[in-house]
Simulated scan of single mutants.
Amino acid sequence: MRIRSALVALTVAGAGVVGLAAPANAATNTCNPSHFCLFYNSNIQNAYYPFWDNVADFSGYTFKGAGDGAGQAVKNNAASAQNLQTGLVARVYYNSNYGGVYDNVQPTSWRNLSNTYNNNASFKWLWA
């Protein structure tokens, strides 16, 4: 009886570990070199949008790729960002036309947005 109980406990515990391996909605979307990408979720996860040039208003842009956020508007929906440019800082603004509070994403890095988390409307390159 004890052996059977132990086997049941191990089976249940094993099922829990397997369930933690990868969320069903996880997607491996990656930002292209020399681009700046906004991601729908924190920790550069799920759908994203790659930018090359400054954008004064995110209206009309929608997240690409797979997973959560695919097809959703970029404006006021980004949670994290990745900058794969060297020598340029990517600045995400709260308002359209480069206004309001902002978050900087340093060259060749990523971060979760704080000042513009799910409240972002424009982006501009700045010299590092």
Rank of each mutant, 00 (worst) to 15 (best):
P33V: 09
G65W: 11
V74C: 09
M1S: 11
F58I: 05
N46W: 00
Y98R: 01
K75L: 07
A27E: 03
V12R: 07
V12N: 09
V101I: 13
N112V: 01
V105R: 09
S80Y: 00
A73G: 09
S42G: 12
Q82I: 12
S42N: 12
A27F: 09
P50Q: 00
R111A: 06
V74I: 12
A128K: 14
C31S: 09
D57S: 01
W110S: 01
Q82A: 08
N29A: 03
S5N: 14
A21W: 11
Y117W: 05
A26W: 09
L7F: 00
Y98G: 07
I44F: 10
A90E: 03
C37W: 06
A79M: 07
A128N: 15
N115L: 08
I3E: 01
A9C: 08
Q106S: 15
N54I: 08
Y40I: 04
D68K: 00
S109D: 10
N25D: 13
A70F: 15
L84K: 07
G100W: 06
Y102R: 07
C37I: 01
A13H: 04
W127R: 15
N43F: 00
Q82H: 13
T28H: 14
R111N: 03
F39I: 01
N83D: 02
N32S: 08
S34E: 13
T30N: 14
D53G: 03
G19A: 15
V18C: 03
N32D: 10
N29K: 08
F63Q: 01
A13F: 05
A15Y: 14
N118G: 07
S96F: 01
Y40P: 08
A121Q: 05
N41L: 04
N118D: 11
S42T: 02
H35E: 14
